[in-house]
Design a protein around this nucleic acid. Structure first.
Lengths: 152, 152
DNA sequence: AACTAAAACTGAAAATTTTTCCTTTATGAC
DNA sequence: GTCATAAAGGAAAAATTTTCAGTTTTAGTT
């Protein structure tokens, strides 16, 4: 699909606050409520808007510790790759897993309570997955920026 | 604040789909609509729920290229740190910036159109920021898992 | 320039949801 | 048992979403 300037603005607004009413959006965009409604539905139907979610502040739910883990597989057999990706996806502590270029195969973003919980996660969950060759972890000292808003 | 099992379930539900009506949530939780409403308001007021956002599929807005950039500052003077963090925060292509332990000072998640756009981003924006010592980029080959839902 | 079809817009009405208000229930302290 | 507090439920009110019918705009064709 194709976006005009209004769609772009609308996506920006919704990426920052999806609880705005169509009336508020219609004011911001100088459109009628119905026009806003229809544009949003179109963006949803075309899969541009994927889902709507509540973002939880991790400190408030006692998950303040964030780490990035690099992982290398022992061998790059397809079977191993598929199994690793499946198992890592099932770990709720792993918010993100990306297959990347470079020295390591994957980078994971892991969220847990504290360093001790991270140790447990590594020992009991992550390294229990088969075919992991080596890992290298980096700990987040402070979160400088974190947004879900894709530039549009 | 303190969470009971219902709050936890509620947060899980809202982290996965914030567009569910209170009636749907009340069914899932075996509660009245009002009770759900009040629990949500409490979670919002206590800052547990930070915001509600629309998640956009990056492929649909022509931002399919994701890279992680490691950055080392030339010197760790506070002034340099503050300035770097401020400037990097203003770059819309940078969705995340974390100050981390390890060989590098920061890790960034960058979203752009393609490799060519990434090159431009590096040359014209990122390395224009003062006090950057060195960088090292890793490109995402495939996104194995990506969620905003913190385990609760 | 006039015509047509499609897309986008508008305002009003209908349907649904959110929010308020008041009553009831459960829990723990005295 | 009584009181105080917190959580829950139901019903009504307020607000929002969604539908609908009709109009305007746009783009392409003749």
């Amino acid at each position: 699909m194709t976006f005009d300037a209004i769609d772009q603005k609308l996506l920006q607004l919704l990426q920052n606050d999806s609880k705005q009413t169509n009336k508020e959006l219609s004011n911001a965009l100088n459109l009628s409520v119905t026009a806003v409604f229809e544009r949003i539905k179109k963006l949803e139907n075309n899969g541009v808007i994927n889902k709507y979610v509540a973002l939880v502040k991790k400190e408030k739910v006692d998950k303040s510790f964030v780490a990035f883990c690099h992982i290398k597989l022992s061998q790059h057999i397809q079977e191993y790759v598929v199994q690793f990706e499946k198992e890592v996806t099932n770990l709720t502590e792993v918010l993100e897993c990306h297959h990347i270029s470079g020295d390591y195969d994957y980078i994971l973003k892991v969220v847990v309570k504290d360093m001790e919980a991270f140790r447990e996660f590594m020992v009991e969950k992550l390294t229990n997955i088969n075919h992991i060759g080596s890992t290298h972890s980096m700990f987040v000292i402070s979160e400088v920026k974190s947004t879900t808003a894709i530039p549009i």
